[in-house]
Amino acid sequence: MSTFLNYLTVLALAVLLLGPSLYGMARERRIDRQLRKAAAGRSTVHTVQKSSSRSTVPSTAT
Rank of each mutant, 00 (worst) to 15 (best):
T47E: 11
Q34D: 02
L13M: 06
Y23P: 01
N6G: 07
T62C: 01
V48Y: 14
L13R: 09
T62R: 15
E28N: 07
T62I: 12
S59Q: 06
V57M: 05
F4M: 01
T62P: 01
L16R: 11
V48P: 00
R30V: 01
Y7H: 06
K50S: 11
S2E: 09
R42M: 07
T44K: 08
I31A: 01
H46C: 03
Y23M: 04
L8V: 09
T44R: 06
N6V: 12
L18H: 04
Q49E: 15
V57H: 11
T60Q: 02
P58C: 01
P20F: 08
L13S: 02
F4K: 12
S52A: 14
V45G: 07
A39G: 04
R42E: 07
S51L: 05
S21D: 09
A38I: 13
S59Y: 06
S52I: 12
T47I: 13
V48H: 13
A39L: 08
A14E: 11
R29W: 03
S53E: 12
L17C: 03
G19S: 02
K37I: 01
G24R: 13
S52H: 15
L22A: 09
T3P: 00
G24K: 06
M25N: 05
A14W: 02
Q34M: 06
A14Y: 08
R29H: 10
Y23A: 05
L11Q: 07
A40S: 08
V48W: 15
G19R: 05
L22W: 10
S59I: 07
T44V: 10
A61F: 14
V10L: 09
R27G: 00
G19D: 07
G19V: 04
F4A: 07
G19H: 03
Q49K: 15
D32A: 14
L35D: 02
T44P: 00
R36W: 09
L13E: 08
K50F: 15
V10P: 00
G41A: 06
A40F: 13
V48F: 15
T60I: 01
S51C: 01
N6R: 10
G19Q: 08
V10C: 03
R42S: 09
L16G: 03
K37G: 03
R36A: 04
L5E: 15
R30H: 04
R27K: 14
V10I: 11
T62G: 03
Q34P: 00
K37L: 04
K37E: 06
V57S: 06
V45D: 15
S59W: 06
R33H: 10
L35C: 02
A14T: 14
Y7K: 08
V15T: 13
A61W: 13
Y23H: 07
M1L: 07
I31F: 01
A40I: 08
R27D: 02
L17M: 10
T60S: 04
G19W: 04
L5G: 05
A40P: 00
T47H: 14
R36Y: 11
A40W: 14
T9P: 00
A14V: 08
L16Q: 10
P58R: 15
L16T: 11
F4V: 02
R33C: 05
S55V: 12
R33Q: 10
A26P: 04
V57L: 04
R27Q: 03
M1W: 02
K37S: 04
P58A: 11
A61Y: 15
R54D: 09
S43V: 05
R30A: 05
F4N: 01
Y23V: 14
S51N: 13
K50W: 15
T9L: 08
M25T: 12
L8M: 14
